[in-house]
């Protein structure tokens, strides 16, 4: 296993050479990601990864791609989406214009899920979905709306459990092992690279979705990001996190009110 000291040196090198700051990432998880990078690249010694960082052009893109976790799915946690559909979307509907930020959107499965919810509520035409990630490779995938066909059965089931009553297969065309989602869905999406560690707020939103992203950050960085979200939400805007994430260790917690026990908070101050 990579030592704490080596991890620290690696973090410093990546920051110094490329400006990506991983110092606030959860060390337990980051260690495993670096070990995985060793495996993928056939690295056995710490000095080898350092020399790659220092001398191989384009290595940092690969490093960021492999170190960040990009596991996601459509309608992940169907009951969460059911709540969105039944409780949150009707509130958003009362607004003249709906702005949503998917922070750490990865390959975009949850952005397309949201677009489907909005379309079914007849709100997509007056919505804008900003989808950002630190990793430019996953954003390219997200833009194309191409997801592995082998996952579709699960996604269709998630969709149904989330209260979807349309024929899920109407939303995509299957081709060569991929499901291409309808262009109508991504017309209202804006994709852009954004680093939650270092970048600032860029708009005001009615809903921020950031699910299973904060778990990769330590408490200090979580607090920074939650303050960024707080300053990017309109009054009475909503913040949605992953099923095991919480704002209770953060300084902004008293500005938010949790909806029952679900991981959705309303900004009240």
């Amino acid at each position: 296993m990579i030592s704490d000291r080596e991890l620290e040196v690696l973090i410093n090198e990546v920051f110094e050479y490329y400006g990506y700051d991983f110092s606030g990432y959860s060390k337990a998880s980051l260690k495993r990601r670096v070990e995985r990078l060793y495996q993928i690249d056939g690295i056995s010694r710490f000095s080898d990864v350092l020399s790659k960082i220092r001398s191989e052009e384009g290595y940092v893109k690969h490093l960021v791609e492999e170190i960040t976790v990009n596991v996601t799915e459509m309608f992940r946690d169907p009951l969460f989406y059911k709540l969105l559909r039944e409780e949150i979307v009707p509130v958003l509907a009362t607004k003249p214009f709906i702005r949503i930020w998917h922070a750490g959107c990865s390959t975009g499965e949850e952005v397309y899920s949201m677009a489907i919810l909005l379309k079914e509520a007849n709100l997509l035409h007056k919505s804008l979905l900003y989808a950002t990630d630190i990793n430019s490779v996953v954003l390219d995938t997200a833009k194309r709306g191409l997801f592995p066909l082998r996952m579709i059965k699960q996604y269709a089931e998630n969709y149904r459990l989330s209260g979807g009553s349309e024929d899920f297969s109407d939303y995509y065309t299957a081709n060569y092992g991929l499901a291409k989602f309808s262009c109508e869905l991504n017309e209202k999406m804006v994709f852009s690279q954004h680093n939650l560690v270092s970048d600032a707020s860029f708009n005001e939103f009615d809903l921020i979705m950031c699910r299973n992203v904060l778990i990769y950050f330590d408490k200090h960085l979580q607090d920074r990001v939650l303050r960024l979200f707080d300053s990017s939400l309109s009054c009475l805007g909503y913040l949605a996190l992953g099923t095991k994430e919480t704002i209770k260790f953060s300084t902004v917690q008293d500005k938010f009110q949790q909806l029952n026990r679900e991981k959705i908070w309303k900004k009240v101050k």
């Binding site: 060390k27 337990a28 998880s29 990601r33 778990i215 330590d218």
Partner: peptide, 21 residues
């Protein structure tokens, strides 16, 4: 340990969760 997350430990003896592969 909750389903669908790996369970990890931080040096300050807190639990971190992880949805990686």
């Amino acid at each position: 340990a909750p389903s669908d997350y790996h369970l990890l430990f931080e040096k300050d003896e807190t639990i971190s969760l992880d949805t990686s592969e």
